[in-house]
Design a binder for these strands. Structure first.
Length: 582
RNA sequence: CGGGGUGUGGCGCAGCUUGGUAGCGCACUCGCUUUGGGAGCGAGGGGCCGCAGGUUCGAAUCCUGUCACCCCGACCA
C-alpha cells in the first residue's frame, strides 16, 4: 500500500520553468521524475511504478510470442562496434569513454551487434532456428538536442528484440508475430495509435512500419488518409499523381526570353506578361534543384538534380530517407560551378543526360506532362517541355513536401498531416548484421545457410511519457488503470480519528482483495490540497472518506469522467473493488 | 551548427536601467487557530546572486571573457 504520509513524494504547485510539453510538466509536478541533466532523468517511486507496469505488459507479450529474454551490458568495447562500422558511422551520437588502460568503450545506443554475436557464439545448426530474443535495456544516445522531457532523452529504456530465421517466409512470419504483439501491447496500455509505413532504407529489408501515438507534441510528422486506412510517415508516403498525359496534347518546345527571372515567382510574372495564350502558375513550372550525394563507400560527392513542380519545395528529409544510406545534402555554389552545363537559376533537364548528371523527378512530374523550365542559358526558359518527348529522367523519387489535402494514392481522398510520437518500430533487417558478423547456420547438406533478421523496438520510458501526453487533462495525469501506480486513491479528510480509522480499514480490506491501494493518510493537510494532489497524481478511482462518514457514506469518484456517487460504508469495499475491475 | 532566451535558497520569480552587501510566493521547522477544493496568524532555518577576471571605497547590479541550461531550426533512429 502506498501511504502518502511516508511515500517519497513531493508535488509541485507551479509548473517547472523548463517544461513545455504536458507530459514533462505533469510528470515533474506530480513527483514521478526529476531532471538530472539534459535528457537524463531520475525516476521516483510513482514514476517507477508506472514504468514497471509498462515493462510488464511488454514483457508478457514478448514471452507470449515465444521470444526469450536476455540482458546485455550497456558498456560495450569499441571492437564490437568496429566490426559493424558503427564506431565511425554513429559519429557524435555515441557516448564514448575509456577504461583505466585507455581502451575505448561506448555506451550502447542499440544492440544489434551484441544480439548477433551472441547467437553466433551459441548456435551453429539449422536445427536451432528460428529464434527470437529480446531485452529491456537502458540505451544511450548523445542527441544533439534532447527535448520534451522524457519523450526524447539521452538515456532511455527500450525493449529491443531480434528474430533470426533461415528463410524469407520465416522472417515474414516473425515480423507478423511481432506486429501482432505490438498491437496487443499498445491496445492493452490504452494508447490511441496508428501503424504507418516507414522507409526501410537500403538495409536489405522489405518491410518497415512504425507505431505512432498521434499527439500535437509529437515530433514525427505523418500522413493519414481521411477516408481509408492508409498512413505513412512523411518519408515513406506515396501521394496520387495526375493522369499521365500524351505528348500530342502539347505544342512543341518554345524557348523564351526571360531575363532576370531567377525565382519561380519572377518567372511566372514574366510568362504571363508574354501573353502566350494562357495563364501560367507556379505549378506549371518545373524546378530543378541541385543536390550532392555520397554513398557510404565513396569519398567523392556526386551531383543529383531533382525536378519538382515549381509550387512545391523539396523535402530534404523525405529525399534523404529514401536515399539512405546514401548521404544527400544541398549542393553548394562550387558544386554547381564545377559542371559548366549547369546555369544557376536556369537549369533544365534537356542536357542533363549529356552532362552525365543524374536526374530524378518527383512522381507528380508524370509522363507526358508539359512544363516551363530552364533552358540552360542565362535569361532563357523553355516552355512546353514534355516528359518522355523532350526529356527523360533517370528515375522517380518522392521528393516534394507533402501538403495537407494531397491525394491518397490508395483511394484518392485527401490526406491529412498529423504529428505523433514513435512508440515502436518493426523492421525487416535482412542480412546486414548477419553478414557483418558472419552469422550462418550449418544446413542439412553440410553447407552454410544464411540467417536473416528482423528488428523490433518499443520505447519503454517514451511510452510512459506518450501515455501521459495522450491521457492527461487540465487537472493532471489520468492513467489508464493497467499502468496507473494504483487502482484506487483513498483520501481521508478532516481531523476526526474515526475518519482515518474507517479509511484505513477500507484500504486494508481492498488490499486484501488484491486491489492496489494508494492511501492519503496525511494528518493536518487540508482537503483542498489532498483533492488537488489526487487529481494531479492520476490514479483512476478516487475515494473520499470525510464529512459524509457521519451519515454513513463515502464518495466514489472516477478520475477521468469525474462521475461521483455516494456509497454506504457497509458496501464501500465491494463497490470500490467493483469500480476497480471495470 | 544557426537563431532567440535565461542563469538569484529545493521549486516559481522580483531586484539589475539609476552600484551601498538580497527579497517575495510555494515548500520546510515550531506554536496556536483552522479542516470538503491548493487555510490564517506568529516565530524560524536555508542563498559565496553560474564561474573567472576587471572597474570602484563598495558589484546580484557596470565592463570583458567563459560555462551551463531552455526554446525554435539543422542534424540524428
Amino acid at each position: 500500500m502506498l501511504k502518502l504520509s511516508t511515500l517519497f513524494l513531493r508535488t509541485l504547485r507551479d509548473d517547472p520553468a523548463d517544461a513545455e510539453v504536458p507530459s514533462h510538466r505533469l510528470l515533474v509536478r506530480a513527483g514521478y521524475v526529476r531532471r538530472i541533466a539534459p535528457g537524463i532523468y531520475s525516476w521516483l517511486p510513482l514514476g517507477l511504478a508506472v514504468l514497471g507496469n509498462v515493462e510488464r505488459v511488454v514483457r508478457e507479450e514478448m514471452v507470449g510470442i515465444g521470444a526469450q529474454e536476455v540482458h546485455f551490458p550497456a558498456l560495450i568495447p569499441r571492437e564490437i562496434f568496429e566490426v559493424s562500422g558503427r564506431w565511425a558511422d554513429y559519429g557524435d551520437g555515441l557516448f564514448r569513454l575509456q577504461d583505466r588502460k585507455h581502451a575505448d568503450y561506448l555506451l550502447g545506443p542499440t544492440h544489434e551487434e551484441l544480439f548477433t554475436l551472441l547467437v553466433k557464439g551459441e548456435y551453429s545448426s539449422y536445427k536451432d532456428y528460428p529464434l527470437a530474443l529480446f531485452q529491456i535495456q537502458t540505451k544511450y544516445r548523445d542527441e544533439a538536442r534532447p527535448r520534451a522531457g522524457i519523450l526524447r532523452g539521452r538515456e532511455f529504456i527500450m525493449k529491443d528484440s531480434y528474430s533470426f530465421d533461415l528463410s524469407e517466409d520465416g522472417l515474414v512470419a516473425a515480423y507478423q508475430a511481432h506486429r501482432d504483439a505490438y498491437e496487443r501491447i499498445f491496445t492493452r496500455l490504452g494508447f490511441d495509435y496508428r501503424i504507418v509505413f516507414a522507409v526501410s532504407g537500403a538495409m536489405g529489408g522489405s518491410a518497415s512500419e512504425e507505431f505512432l501515438a498521434p499527439t500535437p507534441s509529437g515530433e514525427d510528422t505523418f500522413v493519414q488518409c481521411t477516408n481509408c486506412d492508409y498512413a505513412a510517415n512523411t518519408e515513406a508516403v506515396v501521394i496520387a499523381a495526375p493522369e499521365a498525359g500524351s505528348a500530342g496534347d502539347h505544342p512543341l518546345v518554345q524557348v523564351l526570353d526571360t531575363p532576370d527571372t531567377p525565382t519561380i515567382d519572377s518567372l511566372v510574372d514574366r510568362l504571363n506578361a508574354l501573353k502566350l495564350g494562357r495563364t501560367f502558375t507556379a505549378a506549371d513550372t518545373l524546378k530543378n534543384v541541385v543536390f550532392r550525394t555520397k554513398a557510404p563507400a565513396d569519398t567523392e560527392w556526386q551531383l543529383l538534380v531533382v525536378g519538382v513542380p515549381g509550387d512545391r519545395e523539396v523535402d530534404l528529409k523525405r529525399l534523404g530517407g529514401q536515399l539512405e544510406p546514401i548521404e544527400v545534402e544541398q549542393a553548394g555554389p562550387d558544386d554547381i560551378a564545377a559542371v559548366p552545363a549547369l546555369v544557376k537559376g536556369y537549369i533544365g533537364p534537356q542536357i542533363l543526360t549529356e552532362a552525365k548528371v543524374r536526374y530524378l523527378v518527383d512522381p507528380l512530374v508524370v509522363e507526358g506532362s508539359a512544363w516551363v523550365t530552364g533552358a540552360n542559358e542565362a535569361g532563357k526558359h523553355a516552355a512546353f517541355l514534355v516528359r518522355g518527348r523532350d526529356f527523360t529522367p533517370d528515375g522517380e523519387i518522392g521528393a516534394v513536401e507533402i501538403r495537407d489535402g494531397d491525394r491518397c494514392a490508395k483511394c484518392g481522398s485527401p490526406l491529412q498531416i498529423a504529428r505523433g510520437i514513435e512508440l515502436g518500430h518493426v523492421f525487416q533487417l535482412g542480412d546486414k548484421y548477419a553478414k557483418a558478423f558472419d552469422l550462418t547456420a550449418l544446413g542439412p547438406q553440410g553447407k552454410p545457410v544464411s540467417v536473416t533478421m528482423g528488428s523490433y523496438g518499443v520505447g519503454i520510458t517514451r511510452a510512459v511519457a506518450a501515455l501521459a501526453e495522450q491521457t492527461h487533462d487540465e487537472k493532471g495525469l489520468c492513467w489508464p488503470r493497467l499502468v496507473a501506480p494504483a487502482d484506487v486513491h483513498i483520501v481521508a479528510t478532516g481531523k476526526d480519528n474515526s475518519v482515518f480509522d474507517a479509511a484505513g480499514h477500507i484500504a486494508d480490506e481492498l488490499e486484501a482483495r488484491g486491489v492496489r491501494v494508494m492511501y492519503d493518510d496525511r494528518r493536518g493537510v487540508s482537503p483542498g490540497v489532498k483533492f488537488k494532489d489526487a487529481e494531479l497524481l492520476g490514479v483512476p478511482t478516487i475515494v473520499i472518506v470525510g464529512k459524509n462518514l457521519a451519515e454513513g457514506v463515502i464518495e466514489l469518484r472516477d478520475r477521468r469522467t469525474d462521475e461521483r456517487q455516494d456509497v454506504p460504508v457497509s458496501d464501500a469495499v465491494e463497490a470500490i473493488a467493483a469500480a476497480c475491475r471495470s
